[in-house]
Design a protein around this nucleic acid. Structure first.
Length: 738
DNA sequence: AAGATCTATCTTTTT
DNA sequence: GATAGATCTT
């Protein structure tokens, strides 16, 4: 692989060159939108590799998202086709690199796990916590917000604060949770960073170079991870843009960029030249920048930004469909246009109208494999199979009401905790390691399917069996291919596959073999989802007060809305059209146009307030009613499904409680203590008065409470001790006590 | 048990 | 700024 001089960087502008050639101990680059940030990163990596002879293996290239990681490795491979995968093992997201270090470099046993730990799903930790709360009878308040509380109060716990915010047992939960995760040998996302950071500090693992992308999106854990990795001779090169912080609700902040600079005493460079947008768009965007100097453009003039008044979302969808159809007829590709909006649900009406018109589109709502119940279950089957210590997951597999043999909770407990009794699937899962080790060659998906007896377990009698079977087979094929590609035997392959699945997500379309990365329709996406993309033509819709900006409570949030609008505008290369509704049909959104429209100099705008004929609009409006009704019905359906699910959960909980009562003979039957009047006596029932509900009829009572029925309000119970009800007929007074 | 009071969530979504 | 949900108070 000897080669002299990769002079890619000589073609770059002077700012970019300076960034590529920089060798300060620490350097942060303020990279503006469309300024060739990734180009610089790639050029820098190649420069270090070829000119400075820094082996790629000695670099860590860290990104926040998988998408960014993939872009870097793809572009690097395009430049260096002979790259070995081993050379770029240090390239990836913070979490995936942390995982790799824990699995390969650091002495993880010191921290209480073993090298073959598995990675937890994000919800798994809360489920585990709930189980511990139940088992240990901990008093934890606000359980519905447990996930957030666990995150928010962790810092305080570490700092040794006396007690949690609500003076409950939360601080007793942390160590128990930690112990249980170690016992089941699994780590959460934050464990990956926390534990690796600690071990790196102890063991002084220092790479030669750290290159970090999109640094403005990092949170504290990630910054600490970086700090731990920086040895005396380590150079750190971080790229980011404080103007593009749009995820601060998730832990990043617009000060992260500057905090990093301060922490490492970094040299600050900038990439001020934008190669993407025309001059009008850039000048308008400059008004919404919050940090740094203005962006320099590379293009003269360009079309003004169009502002359009729309009657309502439906008439707008029709308008956009017509525009796009006619543009397509004149030779423009669908994929060169994007429609951006603030809320996910704004996309629905566009989908409906585009479907009707046969316009191809790509919507930014990827379905993951986990959303298919059968696959979600299968993943759990496999997870338990490769880690039988994962009691939590084993329990979930056996508890599933639809798949596998129906078992009582008692039987499941016996199986998992005492090893009593037998169950076909359970045995298969426990023996998976032995079985797969015994295979001379990689088993086919069909063979794995048969091994677990999935033909039976997937509910052949239930509706949709064939589809389930096909999906499960497809999934197992995917697993088979993965093992083949990575040249791993089934057991090791399955383990790695499942960890990857948690870390990188599994896209359903990808599994079904539908081509990815080939945008072939109009892009429909939220402003958040548009980050990092560019389009020739952008429609930024719903520029109404309360939508863009979304109504927010504090200044900080308002600033973020501005950045979000900035990100949206700067996606456009040649044409940008902004629109607002007279009739937004969103709760809390007014028909006023966004004040952001007033923030753009009028000379950049093509804004003609043509008072359109209300009549034509009214006609479309009534057409729109039908579509709106459909969408409303769909949402209603989803809500009902949610409620049904909740009810189901409550029912199983009650069943379990009943089971416990049955088992525990010492518990007295409470029903007998409640003295109920016979229906026959109802004519003689006394009247009762309540301050709020008026006159009612006495129904029953026990030692503590009185039950009364009020016309129009139904039955209510009151504590006798509070004396809120007054008996009107004194004949029964003495029977009912005070 | 009911009423008062407190709190977070509306919205965005990644590892 | 309204509302749902949990907790506290009585």
């Amino acid at each position: 692989m000897e080669r002299t001089g990769n002079k890619d960087w000589e073609k770059l502008n002077t700012y970019q060159q300076e960034a590529v050639l920089d060798e300060s101990p620490a350097c942060v680059v303020n990279a503006n939108v469309g300024s060739g940030k990734t180009t610089v990163l790639i050029a820098k990596i190649l420069y270090l590799h070829w000119e400075k002879k820094v082996p790629l293996e000695d670099m860590l290239v860290l990104t926040f998202t998988n998408k960014a990681a993939r872009e870097i490795t793809d572009r690097l491979r395009a430049r260096e086709p002979e790259l070995f995968p081993e050379q770029i093992r240090g390239f990836g997201t913070f979490h995936s690199v942390a995982m790799r270090l824990l699995k390969e470099k650091l002495s993880i046993e010191k921290a209480g796990w073993t090298r073959d730990f598995s990675v937890m799903e994000p919800e798994e930790e809360t489920d585990l916590a709930l189980r511990i709360i139940k088992e240990e009878k901990l008093n934890i308040k606000y359980k519905n917000r447990l996930k957030k509380r666990l995150e928010q109060e962790y810092q305080g716990y570490l700092e040794g604060k006396e007690t949690s915010r609500y003076r409950d047992d939360l601080f007793r939960l942390y160590p128990l949770l930690q112990k249980e995760k170690q016992r089941e040998n699994k780590m959460s996302f934050s464990d990956l960073l926390l534990v690796s950071t600690e071990l790196i500090k102890e063991e002084k693992y220092f790479p030669a170079w750290i290159i970090a992308d999109e640094i403005q999106d990092s949170d504290n854990l990630q910054l600490e991870f970086l700090a731990a990795l920086k040895g005396e001779d380590t150079r750190i090169f971080a790229v980011g843009d404080p103007n593009q912080v749009i995820y601060s609700w998730r832990g990043s902040s617009d000060s992260t960029f500057f905090a990093l600079k301060r922490q490492f005493g970094a040299r600050e460079l900038s990439l001020p030249v934008n190669y993407r947008s025309n001059a009008s768009i850039l000048e308008a965007a400059n008004r919404f920048r919050q940090f740094g100097t203005r962006i320099q453009g590379t293009r003269e003039g360009g079309k003004a930004i169009k502002v359009k008044r729309q009657y309502d979302p439906f008439t707008e969808a029709e308008y956009l469909a017509e525009q796009i159809e006619s543009l397509h007829k004149s030779g423009e590709r669908y994929e060169d246009t994007a429609i951006l909006y603030r809320l996910q649900r704004q996309g629905e009406i566009l989908c409906k109208v585009f479907d009707k018109r046969g316009i191809p589109y790509e919507i930014s709502m990827k379905q993951t494999v986990k959303e298919v119940p059968a696959l979600n279950w299968l993943i759990k089957v496999l997870r338990f199979s490769v880690n039988p210590r994962d009691k939590q997951t084993g329990e979930e597999v056996l508890q599933n009401p639809d798949f596998g043999e129906k078992l009582t909770r008692k039987k499941i407990r016996e199986l998992l905790e005492e090893g009593k009794g037998t169950n076909f699937l359970y045995e298969k899962m426990k023996r998976f390691q032995d079985w797969s080790r015994g295979q001379t060659e990689l088993p086919k998906s069909r063979t794995i399917f048969a091994y677990f007896g999935l033909g039976q377990a997937l509910g052949p009698a239930l509706a949709g069996f064939e589809e389930r079977e096909a999906q499960v087979l497809k999934f197992l094929e995917w697993l088979e291919n993965y093992c083949e590609e990575k040249r791993l035997p089934l057991w090791e392959g399955t383990k790695a596959f499942l960890d990857d699945a948690v870390l990188y997500g599994m896209d359903l379309q990808e599994m079904m073999g539908e081509e990815e990365n080939s945008r072939k329709g109009v892009g429909l996406m939220t402003l958040h989802a548009s980050k990092g993309l560019e389009f020739r033509r952008v429609y930024l819709i719903g520029m109404n007060q309360g939508l863009i900006p979304l109504r927010c409570k504090d200044l900080e949030q308002e600033e973020e809305e501005r950045r979000l609008f900035f990100v949206g505008m700067t996606r456009a290369k040649d044409e940008l059209e902004l629109s607002y509704y007279v009739n937004p049909r969103e709760p809390g959104v007014s028909g006023e146009w966004s004040r952001y429209l007033l923030g753009i100099p009028p000379k950049l705008l093509d804004w003609k307030e043509d008072s359109r004929k209300e009549k034509g609009e009214e006609k479309l409006h009534s057409l729109g009613r039908e579509v709106r009704e459909q969408i409303r019905a769909k949402r209603e359906g989803e809500r009902e499904a949610e409620i049904r699910k909740k009810e189901q959960e409550e029912r199983t909980e009650k069943e379990e409680a009943a089971e416990n009562v049955k088992e525990n003979t010492a518990v007295r039957d409470m029903e007998t203590e409640k003295e109920t009047l016979e229906p026959g006596k109802s004519a003689a029932l006394p009247s009762v008065r309540h301050r709020k509900y008026g006159e009612g009829i006495f129904i029953s009572q026990n030692d503590l409470t009185v039950e009364v029925e009020f016309p129009g309000y139904g039955r209510k119970q009151f504590l006798k001790a509070l004396g809120e009800v007054e008996f009107l007929s004194d004949t029964t007074e003495e029977n009912h006590g005070g």
